[in-house]
C-alpha cells in the first residue's frame, strides 16, 4: 500500500484570475488630482491626524471624514524607514534577480502623519539613511493614474 500513498506533483493547466478593484471616492480624487501634479490628503476633523492618500473614515478617533477635509500636500518629505530589494516576483510564483538593487522607502510627507511607500532613486543603497530629505518625481506626462508618481529622489 505504501506506493499508493506516495505524493506526486500535479501538472497545472494555465488559469489566471483577473481583478478590478474599485478604489472608492476619496482614492479616486487622489488619483485624478495626480494629473495636475497635486498630492491630496485628508485632515481628520475629529483628531487632526493627516492621512495620505485620503480616506473616508479615521482609524484613530473613528470620525467620518468628508470631502471638505481634503488638503493639498507638497511633494517633499522625510525618509523614516527603507529596505533594499535584490529580487522581484514575476507574478507566476518565481523570483527574478534584479540587475540593480531597488530601494523602497517609507516616506512621511510634510504636514502628513501617515507614511507612503515608494521607490527611492538617484542614490546608492549604502548612502541611504533614515531622516533623508526626499522629493517626489513626476513622470513626464501626468495622466491621473497612480503611475504618475515615478519615485522619490533626495532633495
Amino acid at each position: 500500500m505504501k506506493s499508493e500513498s506516495e505524493i506526486i506533483d500535479v501538472k497545472t493547466l494555465p488559469f489566471t484570475a483577473n481583478f478590478i478593484w474599485a478604489t472608492g471616492f476619496m482614492m479616486q480624487r487622489f488619483i485624478e488630482e495626480l494629473a495636475s501634479r497635486k498630492i491630496l490628503g485628508v485632515k481628520c476633523p475629529g483628531c487632526g491626524y493627516t492621512y495620505v492618500p485620503p480616506r473616508s473614515r479615521c482609524g484613530k478617533c473613528y470620525a467620518k471624514i468628508e470631502e471638505e477635509n481634503l488638503v493639498t500636500l507638497s511633494g517633499k518629505g522625510t525618509l523614516v524607514s527603507y529596505t533594499t530589494g535584490h529580487v522581484a516576483l514575476d507574478g507566476q510564483g518565481n523570483f527574478i534577480d534584479l540587475q540593480e538593487p531597488a530601494i523602497i522607502g517609507a516616506i512621511k510627507l510634510e504636514d502628513a502623519d501617515s507614511t507612503i511607500f515608494m521607490p527611492i532613486e538617484g542614490i546608492e543603497p549604502r548612502d541611504v539613511v533614515e531622516g533623508l530629505k526626499v522629493e517626489l518625481q513626476w513622470r513626464e506626462e501626468t495622466k491621473g493614474e497612480l503611475e504618475d508618481i515615478r519615485c522619490f529622489k533626495p532633495a
Binding site: 488559469f15 489566471t16 483577473n18 478590478i20 478593484w21 478604489t23 485624478e32 507574478g91 510564483g93
Partner: peptide, 15 residues
Amino acid sequence: TICVEGTWSLSSYHY
C-alpha cells in the same frame, strides 16, 4: 469609481 487592475495566476501553485 476608478479601478485598479490585477491578476492572480492560479496555475503558479505547486499542487
